[in-house]
Design a protein around this nucleic acid. Sequence first.
DNA 1: AAGTCGTGGAC
DNA 2: TGTCCAAGACT
Length: 357
Amino acid sequence: MPNVQHSDQKTGDIAALLLAHYDVHARDLPWRKRPGQGRADPYHVWLSEIMLQQTTVMAVIPYFARFTARWKNFAELAACDDADLMAAWAGLGYYARARNLLKCARTVVAEFDGRLPDNEEALKKLPGIGPYTAAAIASIAFGRRAVVVDANIERVVSRLFAISTPLPQAKPEIAAHMDIITPEENSGDFAQAMMDLGAGICSVRAPACVQCPLQSVCEAYRDGNPEAYPVKLPKKARPVRTGTAFWIQRGDDVWLVRRKDSGMLAAMRALPDDGWNAKSDGDMGPPFPAKWDHLSVGISHIFSHFSLEMQIAVTAWPDGHNPPLEGEWWDVNLLDKAGLPTLFIKATKVALASGER
DNA sequence: AAGTCGTGGAC
DNA sequence: TGTCCAAGACT
């Protein structure tokens, strides 16, 4: 870590000011301890932290409610069917998280008697738990002092100390500053308070410095340019790819496949496609010869690293036969239970709408 | 160690 | 509209 020097006065003030603000303004989130309670349930902390990776609180809340109602602890989750888990995660994105979630739950049951290890080092060895999540769980669920750094905290810290080094180069520098301002006690509350601050007052655009409990110690505020932080390197352009999905219908059923276990949308149920990916367009070739009707309306979908313009080809399949392609028939009236990723949900809507004419 | 991994809200 | 971004991990 870089050598960082602060005045003791300022660094001491930050935790005190923020924790006092947090006592009054903490968000009431389903995975947090209730006022007056001790610590939150480690299973809830872990589940929420995995779901919250690169995902907004608003998107997570309904998934968290469904998961905790259905699987109340590590043992129940570890015993669940893989396909059920993937379907329950459908729509939340970053599906590797769901596979690692299950691996992690099964490891916790098999090796740790159904309870999470209570320290950062051991947590970080579990599937899906990296530096951020390990620090968050150790501090929030187990009361350990840990230096928690997520994107919110990067923004808040870079403003507090007017860090001009661009991200991601600035990560060690930011972590060093966060280490210094993190208190010995209640580092979990401090981390959550910092994240609440970043999610609300210290927002990316138009931060509400007037309401900020750290205004008096913020260098970016003093300089009048909080929105200048964090400094970031320019990002690369997102390529546009084209491809096709294939809708094979037999009566009220459609033929769904299971995607391979690695790469994009891994292990998810899906419509057959023509091989489109981040690097190249699909080849337009159907999975087998048939009378394909290429619809005039396709769908657009934006992934993190490329955009996809996907056409849809449909064919009617005769009763009593299966297509020469590994998969399963699925009732089109129950497609919401298939656990399809969002781009295929879009495609099913287009295909079904075309059939109504 | 950059690139690979979804999705939807905000503006 | 396009652009940016979110409680990052994994390879």
